[in-house]
Design a protein around this nucleic acid. Structure first.
Lengths: 343, 343
DNA sequence: CGCGAAAGTTTGCGCGCGTAAAAAAATTGT
DNA sequence: ACAATTTTTTTACGCGCGCAAACTTTCGCG
């Protein structure tokens, strides 16, 4: 508001008594103009409120400050949380993030990539859908736009990958469950959406082998992103037909575990290690709500902060080195066991 | 990919043998060109992949197809879910939505509004932070950009409001709890972020009055968006010092209720109406995870679909009538009771 | 076949800003 | 105080496309 309205840089340059190109320089880097002119511009900014148009700015710039953040399903609190942190990291680094969710749909993911090209982003942080991703489209995109993948990896695509070390997750949970009770069965979706699920299954098998136990994998039917519901149905089934080979269960992820706990409650089965408990349930992710389940969920926690920080740091490196990295790095952060009452 | 790369409309017009203005017309409305030329353009589209630059298109258009969607806190699954539906409705209506989260911060909400101006959106769908919103900024924004508020209302601001009828929510839950047991106490945050909370408290008091009972309001300390944690702490406090005046609790919202259930579990208090249950807990919202709590939460459900649909419909009306509505309408959808085991 | 309307083409400007090159002005050093 | 910088101004063009006016071609129809 302040005084009259300024519609473009031309007008603002006029009222500040400075030429437009110099004003343009100022906005791209205030320290690039002489102190006295910077003072005059900032004096004008006090009196008139003007900001360069975000989209016009990027139309003809060599390198923009835009970054895209793409997640597969934003209504999943895990992605909401990691996206939130990444977004704030980007803002702190002086970038302009825009967040997109593929809502679990390949077509939408492709549309997002198309829209992202037009944004002319300096870089993109992307957690792909995984199995449902259109690999060739993602690959093409990464050739055009410097991209760092996070959370779920696609081998060889993007300048780098930052995520969690699934083996660290599963080895810790399996070890813990085994040490404090029975070796666990592994509970997962038959057709997992996310590549991490496959790595976790393999890690489970490997750990069980290493410890000298027979692996038991329990599959829940159902596809899509309604993990809790799928977990609940799958759990009801195996709990009712008594096909569960053990009294301890390791769920592939917390959302399935939430469904599993819900099924246990419905059947009157007490979960935990204490008196009167029939089954122990542990999981992976440390989903934001795992702390509040009943019983609270024992789980291997993502290092949310490290993944978010390193993703953004890596993207900044990529951008600074001109959009390409000499070698594709994969950074995996270990899990941290969170012991709660469910196991 | 296909053949060579097309960088702009000029080039595409050349290879398709049609003039650029006509091609431009085609992309704005394919039916506005003659069948034979449409066929030629589409034949060219088969051979070359070209799409007009999204941001350049909007630079000089009278009316864009952009819409902004602003929510206060996207890591809250309620907002993630409603935003997801609104986003998909917009896409279905041929609009181009962009989603923003204020992450609970006033400064961010203001930044988002600034960025949205530059997007030149045809309209904006906004769920404001509420108490934390910078009212004058939001008001200014709504004067410049046609905006429909949803979920939380700010009196007199925006072209319309679409949300849920808090009285319908609370009256049903209070009535149900009273009819099937004791009249409830009301559990809420001392300083609620959201204006709906205040309306719910007032509705509770009114209902209790009407039914001839003394209202009891239990306040949980804490600010911010970590509702579950605040609910849990608050519940632990009142459950431990025995200050709860009743055996039935109505939580202002489901996230608080999830915290409350967690506290009950920690203290070994059984929740529900059955044998051996000491307390009944009901709530409002039908949060996506309420179905999976232990016990599953009895709650008054938002009509997610209606709110999402009507919001988008209303915005379309606003846009069609040139950005302004004769009178500001407020549409409130009633709640639907979801009976589960917690009460 | 000729006529008027409809559709397409040409031409040119505008959106708001980045950026490059050359000229002018202000600052610096001595 | 004068040459040697540094900074700013001027001028001009580009980004990718929308839009309007005037003109030309095409189409439908009697």
């Amino acid at each position: 508001m302040k005084f009259s309205k300024i519609k473009n840089m031309e007008e603002f340059a006029a009222v500040s008594g400075i030429s437009r190109p110099t004003v343009s320089k100022y906005f791209n880097d205030p320290s690039s103009v002489r102190d006295s002119t910077r003072a005059r511009i900032e004096a004008a900014l006090e009196r008139y409120d003007y900001r360069p148009n975000l989209f016009a700015v990027n139309q003809n710039r060599r390198l923009t400050k835009n970054v895209g953040i793409v997640v597969p399903y934003l209504a999943d609190p895990f992605f909401a949380e990691i996206a939130r942190r990444i977004e704030q990291r980007c803002i702190a680094a002086g970038l302009r993030p825009t967040l997109y969710s593929a809502h679990g749909q390949q077509a939408l993911e492709n549309d997002i990539l198309d829209a992202l090209r037009d944004l002319r982003p300096a870089g993109v942080l992307m957690a792909p859908l995984g199995r449902a991703s259109d690999r060739s489209q993602v690959e093409r995109f990464c050739r055009d736009v410097p991209t760092v993948l996070f959370d779920s990896n696609i081998e060889g695509i993007g300048e780098a990958f930052v995520g969690s070390d699934n083996f660290s997750f599963v080895s810790q949970t399996v070890e813990y469950l085994t040490r404090t009770g029975e070796p666990p069965a592994f509970f997962e979706m038959r057709i997992p959406a996310n590549p991490n699920a496959n790595k976790r299954r393999l890690a489970y098998i490997k750990m069980m082998d290493r410890l000298g136990f027979e692996p038991h994998i329990v599959k829940a039917e159902g596809e899509g992103w309604a993990f809790e519901d799928i977990g609940r149905r799958g759990a009801l089934k195996v709990l009712q037909d008594g096909s569960l080979p053990t009294n301890s269960i390791l769920c592939s992820n917390d959302r399935l575990a939430i469904g599993f706990l819900s099924a246990c409650y419905a059947l009157g089965i007490n979960v935990g290690s204490g008196e009167g408990c029939a089954i122990r349930v542990a999981s992976n992710d440390d989903h934001p709500f795992s702390k509040f389940t009943c019983p609270p969920l024992t789980t291997a926690a993502h290092d949310y902060d490290s993944v978010a920080n390193r993703s953004v740091e890596t993207l900044l490196e990529v951008i600074e080195s001109g959009g390409r990295l000499a070698t594709r790095t994969e950074t995996l952060f270990p899990a941290k066991m969170i012991l709660r009452e469910s196991a």
